[in-house]
Amino acid sequence: MATSKHVRIGKGISWMALIVGAALGLAAGLVYTWEIDPVIERNTAPWQLSAAAREDYVVAVALSYAANQDLLLAVDRLRAAGPNRNIWEMVAEIACDRVKTGKTITNSDIRVVRALEQLYAPQGASGCADGLYPTPAPMTFATPEPVMSPTPTLIPPPSKTPTLPPPTPITAEDVRPTSTPAAGAYVLTRLQSFCDSDQSGVIEVRVYDRRGEGVPGVPVTVTWSGSERDSFFTGLKAEREAGYADFIMEAGRAYTVSLPGFVSSAPVVEAVPCTAQDGRQATTSYWVNFQERAN
């Protein structure tokens, strides 16, 4: 009896059909839950973000770091966005991509690139955005180095009291002729903003020699938006000083000003809105002075 019962149960099931059915059912179940009606996407972590969303996230991390300078917090946040990546390279790549795709139009865009660079550059990472938008130099006057100038010495008027022989006046032969400055011979001596509704958004460039006299004919190059540039010469405005040249900025852009052979970081100025003393709205203007370096 026991044998016949066992046989009857075995005869009631087709194991092959059961396995095939289970496989089909499992596949159908997974297709339904993964494709047709997946779990609603609610608890996404930063590492699951798309490239564009991750860029937004990393930009926010960089801006936050630029404000609070909390590196550990920034590292934690970046690791959440790229747990299996070199986070500094990831930041450098994003900065590079933003420059390549032209996201450097507004002041905000430029601040973003700067913030990203502030984050990755000290950690040894590098990218194509390196140094493109350096942080502007602080608006302070650089103390110019004292230069000897051949001022004519007046012969003292005759007096009744005996005097020592007058000092030998400096003659023209003692003054070395001004030569064309060598490469890298200029230093930035002044970078200061001002707001004037009559002179809105002007970069006033002045180039001096080591004696403090204006130098005409020096080519000045202004660059903006990464690749846009314009060159002009000092001394073309007869009504102004010999070493003077100016450039009108477009509001909302950042510009770098450089001279040939000026090897330091070119000063960056931003055409940001300002309110002039007369209460009118204007765009910030700048005084940018260069002076020939005294050896």
Binding site: A17, L18, A22, L26, A27, G29
Partner: peptide, 13 residues
């Protein structure tokens, strides 16, 4: 058997 298998597989999936 096939139907039973499909039900089992579906619920597992």
């Amino acid at each position: 058997s096939l139907l039973v298998g499909i039900l089992l597989g579906l619920s597992t999936g």
